[in-house]
């Protein structure tokens, strides 16, 4: 069963629509929630965390309705997009307070606060108040409070914002490992290549609607009006190009600076890949690499959102 079920959810801010008839399921593992500004990502995150009630439709997490169900929030870790912490408290005091609010006993709250701070790369014994933290450190502290209870569901709203490159890499690795461990992680981010390092599963929102959902490569397969670009590496690229153009499955060929490579564009990917395989076997053209160039997240995002 899906951990997060969003069923025909719509939300209006007065006369402005924030989310329009959105439906999708999220299963264990990492799922990227993508979309340009104003797509409805934050609205959806707020509905999922019970901060806002949807105007229409239903949201269930772990089989339970979200709205007005504070007990469910013990099982959800939430990292909000904006800084939302007491600046007067140290990271440890802040986490301890959050843990105590979730019902963790005093001593254990202390221990867990230290553990989780160390896990996100912050010094648990740092006596500086959060107000004196750098943006990246505050981001880590915010992520720590989402991870503190090892919740089954993690909703992370732009958790990589403001982090330095090392912090980003550490966080990407951490989130990917949480997905592998069986947490359900829904991560909203603008940084597509970093989302791609964590997952191939996405939910793409645009103007409040779900534009696409699923594996990014499968989504790319469904975008038929965009020719696919494929890099081929072989010993005789000119000969390969001639063969491919004769076959009719290729709409364009481009040679690169690399003398052993060419980029072809095809409208029918399946037929093209079959042809390439056949050429490799029958015509003795030694093809060393076949690399699709535009089934990555960035390309899919651009094709769908424009």
């Amino acid at each position: 069963m899906a951990t997060i079920q969003v069923q025909s959810v719509s939300h209006w801010y007065g006369e402005v629509i924030g989310l329009s008839n959105a439906s999708f399921d999220v299963e264990p593992g990492v799922t990227g929630l993508l979309g340009p500004n104003g797509a409805g990502k934050s609205t959806l995150m707020r509905i999922l965390t019970g901060q806002m009630r949807q105007s229409r439709g239903g949201v269930r997490i772990l089989g339970e309705s979200v709205w007005g169900n504070p007990d469910l929030f013990r099982r959800i870790g939430y990292c909000p997009e904006l800084d939302s912490m007491y600046t007067e408290l140290t990271g440890r005091q802040f986490l301890r307070l959050m843990l105590r609010l979730c019902g963790v006993r005093g001593m254990e709250a202390d221990r867990k606060a230290s553990d989780v701070l160390a896990r996100v790369g912050l010094d648990p014994d740092l006596r500086k108040p959060i107000g004196a933290y750098s943006k990246g450190m505050r981001q880590r502290a915010k992520l720590a409070q989402a991870l503190m209870l090892e919740a089954e569901v993690l909703l992370l709203d732009e958790p990589l914002n403001g982090m330095d490159p090392v912090g980003r890499k550490d966080t990407v690795d951490l989130i990917a490992s949480l997905g592998q461990q069986g947490h359900t992680v829904l991560i909203s981010s603008h940084i597509l290549h970093e989302v791609e390092q964590m997952t191939a599963k996405i939910v793409l929102l645009h103007h409040g609607r779900v534009l696409a959902q699923g594996n990014v490569h499968e989504i790319r397969d469904h975008i038929e009006d965009q020719a696919r670009s494929v890099l081929l590496r072989c010993v005789e690229p000119q000969r390969l190009a001639a063969q491919l153009l004769q076959s009719g499955e290729v709409t364009g060929v481009r040679f690169t600076r690399d003398p052993n490579a060419l980029v072809v564009e095809t409208a029918s990917a399946d037929a093209f890949f079959q042809r390439v395989t056949a050429l490799g076997f029958s015509d003795g053209i030694e093809i060393t690499e076949v690399q699709p160039l535009d089934d990555d997240l960035q390309s899919v995002f651009q094709y769908l959102v424009g």
Partner: peptide, 18 residues
């Protein structure tokens, strides 16, 4: 006021806090 400025209300209400 301080919680609203720090946007901490959403963090509280995303916990088991009514």
């Amino acid at each position: 006021a301080r919680d609203r400025r720090a946007k901490a209300v959403q963090l509280y209400l995303a916990r088991p806090v009514r």
